[in-house]
Design a protein around this nucleic acid. Sequence first.
DNA 1: CAGATCATGTAATTTGTTACATGATTGT
DNA 2: ACAATCATGTAACAAATTACATGATCTG
Lengths: 188, 188
Amino acid sequence: MAKENKTLYAILGMLSHEELTGYDIKKRIDNSIRFFWDAGFGQIYPNLKILEKEGLVTKRVETGETRPNRIIYAITEKGREELKKWLATPVGEQHVRYEILLKLFFGSLLPAEENIKKIEEFRETNRTYLETMQGFKTCLSEALKESDDHLYYLLTIMLGEKIYKAHMEWADEAVKLLQNEQAVNIKH
Amino acid sequence: MAKENKTLYAILGMLSHEELTGYDIKKRIDNSIRFFWDAGFGQIYPNLKILEKEGLVTKRVETGETRPNRIIYAITEKGREELKKWLATPVGEQHVRYEILLKLFFGSLLPAEENIKKIEEFRETNRTYLETMQGFKTCLSEALKESDDHLYYLLTIMLGEKIYKAHMEWADEAVKLLQNEQAVNIKH
DNA sequence: CAGATCATGTAATTTGTTACATGATTGT
DNA sequence: ACAATCATGTAACAAATTACATGATCTG
């Protein structure tokens, strides 16, 4: 079994809830984990084949007369065990990449206005993300009483909220700092 | 020129400050941008060759009698222009990956204690990151009066601080939530 | 004298992205 | 009629990680 292919476990996790087609998995991902674990069809379909070869999922073809054929995948007992085993392993160092910080780090090569504009765009993007999180949260509050799954879903949304808020706060402070600096430079 | 190889620009950016060897570039990265843009030797050396072929940097060999030979790279005017051009392009959608959220999203498959432990480990890791940021900040406060570069450096540290704090706050709330849930489940 | 640091690289593998390819059905 | 959605995939490419390979010098 691959050591690092975590998207495999994202797919397996989705199948631990219900039987799904590759297309359905994509939709589930887009509607839930995409903010911290996105995946395209180019990853989903090949990974499903790997999972099947490893005996972690089984497939069943539903021949549609009007609609296209659907290949429905179901998790096996072995798959469920493998998933739990992975969930139990400690989370490694997680390294992120912030293109905006990379660009800003070398920001002295550009006029300050350009950097300010960049930060303001970043702020705006994060404002829309925050709205999305708050939308998710509202939808969730009803379903929350039903199952434990939803509690964990809520936790992921909560981190999203915190992060996007942190981004926005930073953007505000950063813009102020750069504007001050600009004012000082103009005076001289 | 490659469309997406942003590490190329990280290297070029480091060379915009001073002439460096591949080995030096690695050190510079480790001491500054590694929290948001890490790179290993396996990326640095091949990318330097690409930059040279494109005429964005020049190389000069320093034959050491006692030490190993050093290949010193310097940015060209064309390289500086290319860097500025890239810095001016807007920052695209940046997608992050949080392994801890992926694991937590499917957390209902594990006993709550395990999820709590995971979150507490995450909190601790982020506490050390925050300390590092604060150390960086202290070092910086002296140099800050000299050059504009340092102001942009400060901005990147500020975002780091915000994010690690957000992570820690979230961890505290998340643990509380899970412990409450646990208490409720035990009562029934 | 052992381990860290200086110094350069290549090769293999894995992972992820993007483009291509096909075609029916459903909604506006 | 046109766009969006349903549905499956492959192939090419790009990027990043990891392991391998070498060897001197400096520090404790």
